[in-house]
Design a protein around this nucleic acid. Structure first.
Lengths: 224, 224, 224, 224
DNA sequence: CATGAATGAGACTTCATTCAT
DNA sequence: AATGAATGAAGTCTCATTCAT
């Protein structure tokens, strides 16, 4: 899903590459995108030089992690679509289960210039579009089956996903877990078809509006 | 509000301190909480030594910025409570207008150990509690006046605030602005009293649960 | 001569700067232009950070050393012109004595892109032109006094200086010393006015031809 | 001449060895003796491991390049001696034409410990002596035929060769080419027998004095 | 023999913080 | 109280060389 284009690697090199990405994913998740490459290498059980043989610099590593996250997220989303009885259930499952997707979003918002970084690699941008396409199909099907209110678009849903993917400041505790679930429940309730809905401002937002380059993010981790 | 306890400063020292906090606020907002102190000092028009005369280390500076943010946010929230006709309207206004509050929340989620950091300084922790108290009053009043559903607590509302305070990855464009407003509208709709509500998981979350030390964040910027 | 434009430095900073340049001069002379900056700093009795406070990178340090060399070389040449009875004697003394000039040339030919590097700093380029001007006056005076053959130009003389400034591969031994002196003697003999001279190829080379950018050096230490 | 002692190599190995030496010669000439071995290998179309199968380390590669240079230079010098009418003409041709000789001298003066390095390999040292012997014969013959002044020795001539082998800092331009030719003409004029000659300092320098270990260079590229 | 992945020492540079002026 | 120079600990990245495939 993002790796077919890599030149064939020798088995040991491939294994090292995978271990480095896995270690980086953990370090980025726990210590942010500035986590020391040396520590990442150590966690992966390789020397620093090996990390740099596979990834030219920190950015390349971040891109690789992001692509990997998106790949897994897409796989999870596909499974949800395939296995759930209704599009609505698929949507709920995607929202609830995608830890990988969540990590992607965290990385996305924590690293300055992240969009620019991702654009540098075909894989990364493709993965993003792929995810959006998938979400778009689910949204339209949910509206067709009458479970999702029809005055929201895929873009609206994506924005909500992005918000919910953010870590709560208190996330690890039991309260945080509960808070997160309650928040999701409230959001899902507001998306559900039926009942009286307020008129939302503007028009529904669809994928073409969020895929557009015009929506490039600002400059900085807190704004980006 | 958070600064009464500071020793009297000479006028010029006071001015320097203020300029440093202002510069830091800008740098933290645009370049994250790791922004170089030297740059912050330069922006403030002082030498690095001066910055460190006022703030023992980076953390102290972050605390000062947070306190400053909270002070402003509290002032804005007070104005909302005073000037709006209903508690609901005050809530909406707080959510929509408080740029300072938004920045506070961003800082809160972007910096590792932020809770621990804030706790180190009486001022900072007090400001946070002050803000929560204020929100609590508004929430209870809104429930009393019948505009806010009663199965949510102040903690739930705070979590939503925190979520909405996050920048959308697309925030700068017109679409992003619209997306943000639509998202807020959906959230507010879900908080509004009336209609049929799904049963939310667990119990309502109230201030004591989010002020509790048990909710301390884990170790890392993305999780914290 | 190359340092008037520096902002006033505090006395201690000035002293450190000078010690760093002196240490760098020694290291470059003995270990080439890739000598470790850390060692240079250690020799100067400062920490690496101090070296980098004064010189943004290795290139800047090399430029500073080159400027310093040229400054000293110019001073020596000026002394020769002032103190020697004839322009010819001044020429001989300049050729024989200018250790600093010799070091400049070594650096010049040992470091890739050296000309480009020097051009980056106004001081460096100015010093070079200054030196050429000085040499030009001596050459013309020697020709006017009838001691230097008139079919050579300042450019020719400069080229010979440059050649002689190169280290002989055997330079440190007694033989090398002698070889160097005999070589100089032969060269000076060929420059001396009087007797029958072969027709030299082309025309005399004057300063405008060697100051011209068109004569930029090739890419590399052995060709440059 | 320098390679008879090598063990027989398979045809492909032999071809690889030759390509590596050729690539190294180019890289050393353009980027100095510290040129990355990996780049040299790439230019030669082999993997780094192959380079190290043929040459134990960087020094061995440098020696191989030097031997190769000397071999070619000797062949050219032999041709000059054979084909030119007088020893003087042979001397002039050797000086003017031997690009390989020039490169040998450059490498010799650019690399630290070069003499020590060459001495480590029988081939390299033999090639150097061979070249000196050849030059010695030409010098003596030229003096015998009355075209070379008799107060200079082979060592003096070799030193001049070494000097002229250095690149002029301006070598690439038309002016540089001319300057080089004029410089050679002046030097040759000073070597020519006839006319009044100044007394040169010391005694003529002969091969035994420059082959002597006592002339070993100091420690560093700029002095060596 | 060739390959090219892995190593790991070490270079350069940055920056939070201290301290002499 | 302010200044800004100095420090030195990290961190990133390179590359000569080794070694498993």
């Amino acid at each position: 899903m993002g790796d077919e284009q890599l030149p064939r690697l020798r088995a040991d090199a491939r294994r090292n590459r995978d271990r480095i990405v896995a270690a980086a994913k953990t370090w980025f998740a726990t210590h942010g995108p500035e986590a020391p490459t040396e520590e990442i290498a150590r966690s992966a059980g390789v020397a620093p030089g090996t990390l740099y043989r596979h990834f030219a610099d920190r950015e390349a590593l971040i891109r690789a992690v992001a692509v990997d996250n998106f790949d897994h997220a897409i796989a999870e989303a596909n499974a949800a679509v395939t296995e759930e009885a209704s599009a609505w259930d698929a949507l709920v499952r995607i929202l609830r289960q995608s830890q990988e997707l969540r990590l992607s979003f965290r990385l996305l918002t924590a690293y300055p210039h992240m969009h620019a970084v991702l654009k540098k690699e075909r894989n990364a941008d493709q993965a993003r579009r792929h995810m959006v396409d998938l979400l778009d199909r689910v949204v339209r099907r949910a509206q067709a089956e009458g479970t999702l209110r029809t005055d929201v678009g895929t873009g609206d849903v994506a924005v909500m996903f992005a918000l919910l993917a953010h870590p709560l400041a208190v996330e690890q505790s039991a309260t945080a877990q509960l808070a997160s679930e309650r928040c999701m429940a409230l959001l899902l309730e507001s998306l559900r078809a039926g009942g009286d809905h307020d008129r939302l401002p503007g028009q529904a937002i669809w994928p073409d509006q969020i895929t557009d380059d015009a929506t490039a993010p600002p400059d900085g981790p807190l704004d980006g």
